[in-house]
């Protein structure tokens, strides 16, 4: 702790607080996440150890770099990351920042690159949302939020918790309490973020409950049936009243994303698919013509990350 100067608190979570800090000898800015000391009386938070494990294993241009980790005298664990200036959430909410289609292409491309790196190393992120996409000053997106991430061996019998994922980015199979979801679950969240970039508001905004989230999903993609999702009937919640009666038909995404180019909609349609086994993987998505078609993605150095300084009068 003595090597860092804490400058201000950035945020607070259930298990941790995040601070902006500065390395004393280098003046380098860092983000510091302090796990609450002995919050569970079980010593060092195992989530901290997990995160250290995953981040040291996952070193990638688009994944946040862990700079340091240490314990404070009062036995709290602190993880130190490279400092990111803004997040996609802040960008999307700032109406002064224009978001052109080449910009969107670059944002989603960087997310897919990060996702591909995770999945290639058998890591499920499980909490993809715009708040976990951070940007360095040079425009490089850095994925964060590996608190809930875990190694996944890809074996279908591994049980996973349906508690992960933020509501609006939660895939339908997880909402229906599947415990056997896989990398395709992260891809649903990627699709939601892609849609959000184009709409500039969250795409599927359920109201507080998982049931309402499912309802939103089914209203757009139609109710699951034997043809659009052959395996849905074995999901734990399939026999409860989660599926609206009478069945609803899917609506066309072209009608929702009226301003989006055709190749973007085509990519979105191949990612946001009810049946997890039919969703594109991250590496397949990166090979989609959308990325090779004109216009090319904005060079990341040219992305606008914060609103322009007010004109001096």
């Amino acid at each position: 702790m003595e090597n860092y100067r804490i400058m201000k608190q950035l945020g607070q979570g259930v298990w941790s607080r995040t601070y902006m800090g500065q390395q004393k000898d280098t003046d380098q800015l860092v983000a510091m996440k302090k796990f609450k000391a002995n919050s569970c009386d079980e010593g060092v938070d195992f989530k901290a150890l997990r995160e250290i494990k995953l981040l040291s294993y996952l070193q990638h241009e688009h994944i946040i770099r862990l700079v340091d980790s240490f314990a404070t005298p009062d036995m709290a664990v602190v993880l130190v990351y490279e400092y990111a200036h803004t997040s996609l959430d802040q960008i999307l909410r700032n109406r002064d920042i224009p978001l052109s289609s080449p910009d969107i292409k670059q944002h989603i491309r960087m997310l897919l690159l990060a996702m591909d790196a995770c999945h290639e190393k058998q890591i499920l992120h499980r909490e993809l949302n715009p708040e976990n996409m951070f940007y360095l000053e040079d425009g490089t997106m850095k994925l964060r939020g590996f608190d809930l991430a875990r190694m996944h061996d890809g074996k279908p019998n591994t049980l996973l918790s349906p508690q992960a994922f933020a509501l609006w980015y939660k895939p339908p199979e997880v909402l229906m309490r599947s415990q056997h979801y896989s990398f395709s679950a992260d891809m649903w969240s990627v699709g939601c973020i892609f849609a959000e970039l184009m709409l500039r508001r969250p795409f599927l905004m359920g109201q507080f409950t998982e049931l309402s989230q499912l309802d939103k999903i089914f209203k757009v993609f139609g109710t699951p049936n034997e043809s659009n999702w052959p395996d849905y009937a074995i999901l734990p919640l399939a026999w409860h009243s989660t599926v609206p009666v009478p069945p609803v038909a899917a609506v066309s995404l072209d009608g929702i994303f009226t301003a989006a180019p055709n190749d973007a909609i085509s990519l979105l349609k191949s990612i946001l698919v009810l049946d997890p086994s039919n969703r594109l993987t991250a590496s397949q998505a990166l090979r989609h013509p959308y990325f090779s078609n004109e216009p090319p993605p904005t060079p990341k150095g040219n992305l606008i990350l914060s609103s322009p300084p007010p004109e001096a009068n």
Binding site: N38, D41, E42, G43, V44, L49, I52, K53, S56, Y57, S69, F70, A71, M75, V77
Partner: peptide, 21 residues
């Protein structure tokens, strides 16, 4: 006692600079 384990845990982790793997 419990406290000794919790304290030793931090001691080991700090001694190894959190390089566990």
């Amino acid at each position: 006692c419990r406290q000794e384990f919790v304290k030793m845990e931090t001691q080991i982790l700090s001694a190894l600079g959190f390089k566990i793997s």
